[in-house]
Amino acid sequence: MWLLFIYFATVSVVAGVLTVSLRNAVHCALALLTLLFHIAGLFVMLNAEFLAAVQIIVYAGAILILYLFVLMLMNLKTEEQHLHKKHSYLLFAGMGLLAELLILLMLSPYGGRMGSATPEVVLTTGPSHAVGITMFSDYLLLFEIVGVFLLGAVIGAIVLAKTPAKTENQEPANFPTP
């Protein structure tokens, strides 16, 4: 058990670090892909098989592809400076914050109301069945709202990314240079 966890966790962290530090953007996307896969594995270890599947299908299969599409549309040149000029300050600040966060988390007590869905129950009913029952009974409203939300997002994306209609004597929007 431990071995699996260590493997998944280590690779996730490494992938995450790579994502934020690689020069080429496409390489970063690939690292992200790796991260997503290993997080799905962690989900499986936590008895959330359905979620693992959703993660791979939606996150890795749709969102990441979207990123890759846009990256390829950009046709970016690999630049010399991929990090900010003063990135070291922020790096160290972030590290400090991480250490502090870890200490805090380790020191704080964990508690909470124990629910009723023990792993045996989930195994008995099947993971997707369990998820479905909970969603369509306790979280029905949220489900609907998320549906509308996604609709809004789709419409918004279409409106934003539309090629503006050419009118007489209109030039493409010129952003004022500072």
């Binding site: 914050l97 805090l104 380790m106 020191l107 704080s108 007590p109 964990y110």
Partner: peptide
């Protein structure tokens, strides 16, 4: 970050000392 610190320290406070790691 500042907000979280404030909240954590304010709400948990001395119970940080009585932590239990499991």
């Amino acid at each position: 970050a500042i907000l979280i610190h404030l909240v954590v320290l304010w709400f948990t406070g001395s119970s940080l000392a009585n932590s239990s790691m499991y």
